[in-house]
Design a protein around this nucleic acid. Sequence first.
DNA 1: TAGATTGTTAATCGATTAACAATC
DNA 2: TAGATTGTTAATCGATTAACAATC
Lengths: 208, 208
Amino acid sequence: MAKRAIPDIVIGRLPVYLRALNFLVAEGRQVTSSQELGDRLGISSAQIRKDLSHFGEFGKQGTGYDIAFLRQQLSEILKVNRMWDVALVGAGNLGKAIADYPGFVGKGFNIIAIFDNDPAKIGQIMGINHVTVQPVEELERTLRERGIVVGIIATPAEHAQAIARTMVEGGVKAILNYAPITIMVPPGVHVQYIDPVVGLQRMTYYLA
Amino acid sequence: MAKRAIPDIVIGRLPVYLRALNFLVAEGRQVTSSQELGDRLGISSAQIRKDLSHFGEFGKQGTGYDIAFLRQQLSEILKVNRMWDVALVGAGNLGKAIADYPGFVGKGFNIIAIFDNDPAKIGQIMGINHVTVQPVEELERTLRERGIVVGIIATPAEHAQAIARTMVEGGVKAILNYAPITIMVPPGVHVQYIDPVVGLQRMTYYLA
DNA sequence: TAGATTGTTAATCGATTAACAATC
DNA sequence: TAGATTGTTAATCGATTAACAATC
C-alpha cells in the first residue's frame, strides 16, 4: 500500500519556509512559532502546521520550533543537505549572471559545467566556480559521465526545447528554465520556470 | 453589487497563455484550440476554456481561437497593451543582467531608472535603454516625479525590505523581488518573487 | 501551575474536471 | 450537412481554515 503522496503545493512551500528559517538564523534567533512564520510569509499559521505535519512532528507545544532543528529537517526533506551538481546551458548575459550568482552557495547547488554554441564563448572561464565553457555538442556526454541530474537552461527561447530534450537524454531529471517558453518533457522530469515577464504581467492586471 | 473577483490563480495563468500565443504567432500560426494550447502547456483544455470564460467569449465553436485576436484580448486584460515604466534598484551583477535583458521588449515593460548605493556604480550608463545609475537616495523622489508604479528589487537580501518600503512610499504598487527573502508590504501592493534556489529546491524533493 | 502553542480533525471553501448542449 | 470545438453547468476533487484537545 503506497503512502499517500504529499501534495506538490506543499512541497512548493517548503523552500520558502527554509528561506525564512535561514533568515531567522542570520538574525541570531533560536526559536519561532507557526504564528510568527505565518506573519512573515503572509500565510496562516494553520497552514504551516498542517504542511509540516505531513513529514513529522517538529515543534513543542507551548514553545514552538527550534529554528536550527527545523531548518535541518526541511533541508533533509528537500534533499538539499547535500550538493547537487548542476549543468548550465547558455553563456550569454543571462547565463553569465547565473554562473556568477552567489546565492546558490550553501543552498545545495553547484554549477560544475557550462555549455554554449558560440565559438567565442567556448573555452572562456566563467562563474564563481571558474568553469570552462564547453561546446554544446558535449552536453549529453558530459551529463552522463558526471552523473548530472539538474540542469539550467539560459538560452534563447528557440533553442530551449532542443536543449531540454538533450538534457533528458543525458539523464537530467530537474530543469530550471529561464527561457520564456513552456517546454515539454517526459513524465518523471521536473521543470520550474523563471520568467520575469510572467511575474510582472501577473501584477499589472491589478494596477489602475 | 460588486462583480465577483476573478481568482488570482486564473490571473496567474494568463501571462503563460499569452507567452504561448506569442510563440504560435512567431511560428506563423493563425488559429488554435483549447486542446492544442492545453497540450503545449500541460494543462487541461477545460481549464483554459473556463479561465477565458471569466472575461468573455473569444472563440468560435467548431473552429477554436484566432491567435492574434486572443493575444490582443489577453494583452488588454492584463493591461500590457501599453508600456509600464519600471524602476530597478541594484546595479550589481544581477541588476546589470536584468537591465540588459532583451526579453522585456514588446512585453509591456521599460526600465527607465536604475538605482544603487555604490558610488562606483552611480553615474554609469546601463541597460538596453542606456539609463544612468542614480544614487538610491533619489529613489523615492524619482518614483513620484515620474509616476512609476512598478519596481524591481535586485539588491542583497538585507536591503530588500528597506527598498520595498521606500518604493511603496514613492507610490509603487507592483514589485518584482529578486532578493531571496519574503518582504512585507501594505495591502494593495503586489509582490512577485524570482528565486532560482526556490525553483531548484522545489524539484530536488522528487529526485532519487 | 498558567499560559502558550502544537498537531490534528472536521468543516468550509475554492479549484478542477467531465460532460454536453449550442453552434460555427 | 457532418464534424469539431466552444462556453457552461454540475459534480468531483483537493486545499485551507477554524477550532480544540493534548501537552510542553
